[in-house]
Design a protein around this nucleic acid. Structure first.
Lengths: 225, 225
DNA sequence: CCAAAAGTGTTCCGTCTACACCCATGG
DNA sequence: CCATGGGTGTAGACGGAACACTTTTGG
């Protein structure tokens, strides 16, 4: 082992995941009770330590996979959190990531095994350490990203109705939108494709199901909602 | 020392600074030749290791201070960079920060002592490790921030002309702007105050000097340039 | 007297916003 | 037959973009 920097201290490095989901017209995140010391029993984000043989991104993806069984999830870094005493036990610097998943892709069984649950983003309890701040920043970044990038679809099923899409944006932005204006904008994005399938769950009349065509988007990529 | 996490590996943690300046109507950053192994002699951002007794933000501020002698500089985190082999010597995770300084506040003497120089942002050479990527991300964040927050003033002297301000925004956005439209917008921001001082450097006629009134901004804070 | 930068308003166009009614269906 | 959510267009307001000429003064 080389020793270029041996005069300096090392620290523990972890990742913490802010996992967004959309259910019952609400934006939610996954949290659970911490089952390790320090902070055992407190509400907390799901996280894990970074291994010596993986990048930060890889650690975040692995951690998410361990929790949800999902791969290739949309994840983005929020930032590094490194106050000295953020962890009561040791010096631990944590890198937060947010993820967008479709709640239906997450097996309830795994959820129970890990003891995590969906909590309304506007109703987050006090969390362990600086996790509330991580959530705050993640939400801000995510909201920003959703304005100009078609990432909201990650939170929806592959087929969705326009009302679902609108409710999602309303939940994220925290304000209601005008139905006609919303649909006008969607109609101009040709990569949001109407299928000939009808969803009969949500209404008697039935609503057309749409899908997001990623390939089409790459050719004609301007997005604004 | 407690040992909650003793089963996990520790890593070295550093900070790297993308220091923006504005000079000759160009946006620039400070870089220097690395004077330590590995990578000795390569162009590089200025950085340093995080100490055991300081937060990440504190480490970034200290590093900037060591280089420039400046305190209370506007700094924001860009993010954590943690590819396994980003440092050829050891596993080092680095947290990048960008800073905005007024080039005139940076003593040339200190610049020479540390062997750093201002380089046009559009003409950055190949840098050590992943530093080019750090610069790219920092620039993007900074550009974004400048659109909606009055942080550009950090790059200008306390007194500045409207043409200077416009040139700054043109440099950051990479496109020319219309003088009348620009001034119209400035005029609506009452916290950008006209002084009765005249700058005679830049023109024969002379241009009014303006200042940014932070207090006034806090009361009437909407900004858009 | 002229080069060089400072300073100043108006018009046009496209975008965003507000707004109300009919449709289809299951129960 | 009615309650429920799905689906549709237009007009007016607003904000952003384009655009040209006069002023001042040092050399």
């Amino acid at each position: 082992m080389t020793t270029f920097y041996s005069e300096f201290q090392k620290v523990f490095l972890s990742v913490d995941c802010i996992i967004f989901g959309f259910e019952e017209n609400k934006l939610k995140i996954l949290i659970g009770k911490r089952n390790m010391d320090p902070g055992r029993g407190e509400w907390s984000l799901y996280g894990g330590f970074v291994r010596g043989d993986e990048s930060l991104d890889a650690a975040a993806n692995r951690t998410l996979f361990e929790l949800t069984g999902l791969r290739k999830v949309y994840m983005r870094q929020v930032g590094a959190f490194g106050n000295i005493d953020r962890d009561p036990g040791e010096r631990v610097v944590s890198v937060a990531y947010y993820a967008l998943i479709n709640v239906k892709d997450y097996p309830v069984k795994l959820m129970q095994e890990h003891g995590v649950e969906w909590v309304d983003i506007d109703n987050i309890p006090q969390l362990y350490s600086d996790h509330n701040e991580m959530v705050r920043q993640a939400r801000k970044l995510m909201k920003q990203k959703m304005k100009t990038n078609p990432v909201g679809f990650e939170l929806l099923p592959g087929l969705f109705t326009l009302t679902q899409l609108q409710r999602l944006y309303e939940a994220v932005n925290g304000e209601e939108m005008d139905k006609r204006n919303f649909r006008k904008r969607v109609k101009e994005m040709n990569y949001i494709e109407k299928t000939d399938l009808i969803d009969k769950q949500s209404s008697r009349r039935g609503a057309s199901l749409y899908r997001f065509n990623k390939k089409a988007f790459n050719e004609d990529s301007n997005f604004k909602l």
